[in-house]
Simulated assay, not measured.
Amino acid sequence: MHLSTKSNQLQEMLAPVVESLGYDFWGLEYVSQGKHSVLRVFIDHENGIQVDDCAKVSRQLSAVLDVEDPISSEYSLEVSSPGMDRPLFTLEQFEKYIGQVVSVKLRFPFEGRRKFMGRLNGVEGSDVVVQVDNHEYCLPIDSIDKANVEPQFK
């Protein structure tokens, strides 16, 4: 997905720190809202994520952020598991969830709409293929603002 320059800078700085601690860097969200800005970092591990894992990663990331100071305004740092409704950031992540139900929100309307919820049918080039009812949409990953797996309970 298209990331802002700030998000790219933060990802390049923080991903190696997360991975050096033995976790997978799943992605990040940076929401700039003055004093209420939030930097949310998602981590994953094959054995799952516990609160202690988030605290450990948070301490390390805080130390790096304090030294590097990439965000000049006040913000809150949150470290979290991606959870069951995990956000999807990369084509590789979308590929892992083919066959699942996903919700996708675009930055700009595509065929008259910005929100899509349906079965993830695949990835073609740099497009994510989502089937909504009986129609397939090829959504360019660069135009996706936010995407999540929708948990299905039987």
Results as ranks from 00 to 15, higher is better:
E46A: 15
I49E: 07
V149F: 03
V102R: 02
L39N: 14
I43C: 08
Q9V: 00
V123M: 11
L39T: 13
H36A: 09
S4R: 09
L3D: 05
S7K: 05
A63F: 07
N8G: 07
V41M: 01
N47T: 11
V123R: 06
L39M: 14
P140N: 05
E78G: 07
L39E: 09
L39S: 12
E136M: 08
K154L: 11
F94A: 03
P82I: 11
Q33M: 09
Y97R: 06
N8V: 05
Y23C: 03
E19V: 03
R107E: 03
V102M: 03
K96R: 14
I98F: 02
L139V: 05
S143P: 04
H36L: 09
G34S: 09
P16R: 08
T90A: 04
V57Y: 08
G125P: 13
G125D: 14
R40Q: 07
G48C: 03
G48N: 03
S62I: 02
I144C: 10
I49Y: 08
I49R: 12
Q33D: 13
D85T: 04
I98K: 07
G122I: 14
S80R: 10
I141S: 03
Q9Y: 04
L39H: 14
G83V: 10
Y75W: 09
V102P: 04
S37L: 05
P109S: 08
L120M: 08
E78A: 11
E95P: 00
A15V: 02
L61G: 06
D44M: 03
F42D: 08
I144P: 07
V31H: 11
E12I: 01
L139M: 09
G34Q: 09
E124M: 06
R107V: 02
K6P: 05
E19Q: 04
N134P: 00
A147N: 12
S80Y: 10
V123T: 14
N148W: 15
Q11K: 13
S81D: 14
E111M: 02
Q9F: 05
A15K: 12
V18Q: 14
S76Y: 12
P16L: 11
Y75A: 04
Y97G: 00
T5S: 15
E95M: 02
Y23D: 05
V123S: 13
R59V: 02
V67A: 09
L139F: 09
L65R: 03
V17K: 02
G118R: 04
V104Y: 08
S7D: 08
S7I: 01
